[in-house]
Amino acid sequence: MIVQAIAFYLFAAITIAAGFMVIAARNPVHSVLFLILAFFNAAGLFVLLGAEFLAMVLVIVYVGAVAVLFLFVVMMLDINFTELRQGFLNYLPIGGLVGMILLMELLLVIGSWVISPAAAHFAMAPTPGGLSNTAALGRILYTQYAYLFQAAGLILLVAMIGAIVLTLRTRPEVRRQKIGQQIGRRPVNSVALEKVKPGQGV
C-alpha cells in the first residue's frame, strides 16, 4: 500500500511540476520536453489505476506522435517566442483576474457537488468481469460496437475520397520519378563511348 502511495505522490508531483515548467520554460524545445515528461508521469498514474492499456496508448500516441509533432512544428516554424512573451506582464492583472474568477466558479460548483450514492454503483471497474482492460476495451470496440466501428471506418474512407476528389489534380508539367524507367536503363542505350582525339575535346 505504502509503495503505491509513494508512487502516486511521486508521479502526481512530477506531472504538476512538469506541467508548470511547460509554460514557464524559456526555450520552447524545453517546453515540449517537459510536456513529454508530464505524459510519462500521467501514464504512470494510469498504471496505478489499473488501466495499463490507456497508459501504453498515452505513451505511444502522445509521446510517440503528438509530442514529436509539436517538436517538429516548434523547430520548423520560425516563431519568435520572446516577442510573444513581451505582453505577458502587461496582461498579467487582467489574466489573473479572469483566472481567479474561473477558480472561484469552480470552487463554488465543486463545493455544492454531491455525488449521488447510486453513481458509485455504475462506476466501471477497469477490469470488468476479470478481463484485462485491454480485452474489455477490445470487446466493446470490436464485438459490442463492431457495427459502429466499421461505420466509422467508412466515414474515414469517405473523408479520404473527398479530400482526393476535391483537391487532387494531375499536372502534366510536373516531372515525376519513374522508377521502372530508371531501373530499366541499360548501359547500351545510355552510355556512349567516344574516341576523343588528344587536344580536341569532345
Binding site: Y145, Y147, L148, A151, A152, L154, I155, V158, A159, I161, G162, V165, L166, T167
Partner: peptide
C-alpha cells in the same frame, strides 16, 4: 450513436458531392 454515425456517413458524402464540380 448509430444515429449520429450513420448521419455523418451520409452527410460527409453529400458535402463532397455538393462541391463535386470543383
Amino acid at each position: 450513436i448509430a444515429l449520429f454515425i450513420s448521419l455523418e456517413l451520409q452527410s460527409l458524402a453529400l458535402y463532397v458531392m455538393a462541391a463535386f464540380e470543383r
